[in-house]
Amino acid sequence: MNDSNITRRHVLVLGGLTLGVGAVTLAGPGPAWAATAGDDAAAVAGVELVPVAASPVAVLAKVGHAPAAFPRQLAVQVRHVDTDLPAGTQVAISYEPRIYSPLPSAVATVGTRRLRTTSAIATDPETLVTTCTITLAEALPAGSNPVVVVGTAIPVLYPRDLVAGPAEPTAAVSHKGTRPGGRKNLRPGRPEAFGEVATPWGLEVSGVWDRHEWADGARWYYYPARITLSSVGPGTAPVAAAFSVALDPQVVADVHIVGARLNDKTYDAGARLLSDTRTASLFETRWTTRAKLKAGDRLDLELKVRTRTVKGDLPTVKHPTVNLIDMGNHVTQRQTGRTTMSRRDSTWA
């Protein structure tokens, strides 16, 4: 029986905290705006775009590329300390649709107040870069400094989790009916924790379940009989595969690994018990093997589970879970969405 409920992980990985500032300039009286091209253009009218670059995410490309840093939110603050913003002011943010998803409705706020706006989304048919343009429906006095948010990084799972050559996220300000210029790159500084060139790798957890029955078959509890660890590559896992098995101590008395096969051949997995935790509500064992799985490898581990004699209903139950643990360099770990397996369909009361 296959696992029926898989917990999915996000592909994108938390990094450090950075904040960049660049200027977009406006010229001319009233709403007659002219933007000066260039990322570092000097501010003519005191308007600048400040990327909201907290908690950048790591985006993995193909082999031979270092993890790239992208902003978690497609957001920018429009600073205008000495300049009024007229109604019709537009902020256009362009982004890579393989990394970002637009909000159902773009948002602009001043403090805790949400501004009246309209927004539109368009995709360039040649570059496939998407642009969300938000238009302010109200004028703002100097110093309001609104924050505009149009989208957020999305979880992308294997096999689409490697994004080669992503488009740069950029922002620009203009007035309605004019072409925006002076685009500001929203990319944050690259955290050192993202490391240098590395080969992405990833593992999937699956398995076969058995079940213990009591009360003449009216009650039952699932537990893993076999755990399968599969490598999706392209790189080799940097450390030996390790995992935890969490079960209900009311039902399960002990767990042992009694056999292993690597790519359908008998294998000495060197399975070693790292820890054994027992409380009134949790029985958890943590295991390591000696297998650094290469792309395409499959390690099958056979478990022997000793169950207890259960009588009647249980007040509650700890659902069984198997999780990858201690797998090292998580920045370059591919997000397979299958690093955990669980069953939620036991019947105990």
Rank of each mutant, 00 (worst) to 15 (best):
G182N: 04
N329Q: 15
R226L: 13
G296T: 04
P166N: 07
P159T: 06
A61T: 15
A260S: 10
A139M: 08
T118I: 11
G16K: 10
P104L: 10
G259A: 07
P155R: 09
Q335I: 12
P71W: 00
M341N: 03
G195Q: 01
Y222P: 03
T109P: 05
V76Y: 01
A61V: 07
L273C: 04
T36H: 14
I325R: 09
D210Y: 12
D248S: 08
R116Q: 14
R116D: 15
A349I: 11
T131F: 08
E168I: 13
P191E: 01
L60A: 10
L303A: 00
E138Q: 11
A295I: 06
R160M: 13
A280W: 06
Y267E: 05
P249W: 05
G177R: 00
G259Q: 03
P249N: 06
L314H: 02
T112D: 14
T7H: 07
A45F: 06
V322Y: 00
A172W: 05
A237N: 08
C132D: 12
F70L: 07
S275M: 01
L115A: 00
D248K: 03
A225K: 06
D254M: 03
W209T: 03
R306V: 14
G217T: 03
L140G: 01
P56Q: 06
R183S: 10
D124M: 00
R290M: 15
L229Q: 04
P51Y: 02
T118Q: 13
K184F: 10
S230N: 08
G217H: 05
D268T: 13
A137W: 11
N2K: 12
T279Q: 05
L74S: 03
G195C: 02
W214H: 03
H212Q: 10
D210E: 12
V150A: 05
A137H: 13
G259Y: 01
N329W: 05
P180T: 01
Q250G: 09
T236N: 03
R183K: 12
D313C: 06
R343G: 01
I99H: 08
G337F: 02
S244R: 04
T321W: 00
A167R: 11
Q73T: 14
L262I: 05
A349K: 15
R226Y: 11
P200Q: 07
A66I: 08
E284D: 06
L128S: 15
D84V: 07
R72A: 10
T7L: 12
L157P: 07
A153H: 02
G22R: 09
Y267P: 06
A87F: 04
L301M: 09
G38H: 02
Y100S: 06
L314N: 01
P224R: 00
I121F: 08
P159G: 02
A108N: 03
R8V: 15
V78S: 00
H212P: 01
R113C: 10
T285W: 08
A260I: 04
G20S: 15
P141H: 14
K292H: 07
D326M: 09
I121T: 15
A120C: 08
D3A: 11
R79M: 09
H319T: 13
G233F: 10
L19Y: 11
P141M: 12
V317F: 05
P51Q: 00
F194K: 06
V47W: 00
G189M: 14
R338K: 12
L299A: 04
D3Q: 12
R261L: 08
V24K: 06
N145W: 05
V251D: 04
A269R: 03
D297N: 06
T316C: 15
S4C: 09
S101E: 15
V47T: 05
G22F: 10
P86Q: 01
A45Y: 08
